[in-house]
Write a protein that binds this DNA or RNA. Structure first.
Lengths: 244, 244
DNA sequence: TGGACAATTATTGTATACGATCTTGGTTGC
DNA sequence: GCAACCAAGATCGTATACAATAATTGTCCA
């Protein structure tokens, strides 16, 4: 297909994102993707209010389209909508955080196995480039970008597996993981991550599904353990953290 | 909590359904649930057009709320929306059908294992009552109701497992399964199904997670094999099937 | 001075109106 | 007679206006 006009980020990743939002391409989808990437890049912190008027004015569209976009985001778990109160960037609870990573630990290893079977040479090259970019961002100290790329690595794997439904589940889980990491990440070093990704890629190159599954499982569990999910004041408003 | 006014069907099932649609309770949610159950009960066949004006007039609401409801249903995969053409009850492709049951075969056995651990006496009683109702419907020859109850049985199990994210995934998959069954079911006898459900319940009563996982896995695979997913004209409009 | 109540303000929920796009039926030219 | 084109109708996409609800702030009384 010819490259359609795309206003933001890498078109490859953006194109795949269409699958999450079952919206006929248009302004609504644009707003969706913009808010989505803003949240993924941690430019919109969890809990922030997304006023319809405000968002509409920023992007130059009516509340109607903003509403549709917010509802779409709500369905993917990135936004919560409260009746007569408005939409907010989601603040996953500790419990949700556990559930997300448990779900990932269930689904992604299976995906990895499928990917090891279906992967092509071009895919391997693309994944390697992704890892390089991740290293690069890490070396530059751009932690936010590194984490974002790390998530995209997982979604790319899911795409290669050629299983749309599981891939969309993974995508949704990874989006939520981004919010969870924004709230609960404790580990300073993400070096081990890159190592996992490299090992995973190696197993793909060897078409070793068993190994890929095992590596991915360990990797997810490792990520899970990298969160600080102790029961500190969970329901704290932004007020409390401003006063610490 | 006090029983809120609920316009349709059993409140227990309906209450849980709220989780699928992240909408603040209101007319939009009502329409969503009504269309949802209509589709699940096979009263709306796959492919049927859901005109905004038409639906709005039926339920006495504006197109605005109907639109929101249709978009919500689109997110859950029950409805497809085509730009400038409208919304239709989804027609899962053969590929999607495979994917749905593959995903179920991955997730539901794990859920079953968790349920075996978390199940209470009250849960067991409720599940048994569900099986009885299923037998009853089957004896009465009401195949549609039996299938609907069969699906609800799976969602109830997911609720007991106490894992919201996986439960919602299962709910979504089962909703789509209903559409798939409407399109591709070939097996005349569903007796084996009831047997599986009974065996599952027994493993729950014994808190035998291993057994529950294995039984559920076999059960899902069995359901999958009960579909006629040969490559007959897949993209057929309602026209072709009207001329057979 | 503290709390409860009431009016104001702001924001969302819903309906309606208008413009854009697609479908459909008829007409015209070849 | 056939195909292509054009116009009319219908449906969706979007914007705007009004109504309903919740948060806030100011005021009054104990």
């Amino acid at each position: 297909m010819t490259q359609p006009l795309r206003t933001s980020q890498t078109s490859a990743a953006a194109d795949r994102l269409h699958d999450i939002f079952p919206l006929p391409a248009g302004r609504t989808l644009d707003i969706c993707l913009k808010l989505h990437s803003a949240i993924l890049e941690h430019r919109l912190a969890p809990g922030i209010k997304l006023s319809e008027d405000e968002v509409g004015e920023i992007y130059g569209v009516s509340r109607t389209v903003v509403r549709a976009a917010l509802q779409a985001l709500a369905h993917s778990g990135m936004v919560t909508i409260e009746k007569n109160r408005g939409a907010f960037v989601a603040r996953p609870t500790i419990r949700e955080a556990h559930e997300v990573f448990e779900a990932r630990a269930l689904i992604e290893p299976r995906i990895a196995r499928m990917t090891a079977q279906a992967v092509s040479e071009a895919d391997l090259v693309r994944l390697q480039a992704h890892i390089d970019a991740e290293h690069e961002a890490l070396a530059a100290g751009d932690m936010g970008k590194a984490l974002s790329l790390s998530g995209q690595f997982h979604t790319e794997i899911a795409d290669i597996a050629n299983h749309q439904i599981l891939a969309n589940m993974v995508r949704s889980l990874i989006s939520r993981s981004s919010l969870i990491i924004a709230l609960y990440w404790k580990r300073a070093d993400t070096a081990c991550e890159s190592h996992s990704h490299h090992a995973l890629l190696k197993s793909f190159a060897e078409h070793n599904g068993e190994a890929a599954e095992e590596i991915q499982k360990s990797h997810i569990i490792d990520l899970h353990s990298g969160l600080d999910l102790r029961d500190r004041l969970d329901k704290t408003n932004s007020l409390a953290e401003a006063l610490t």
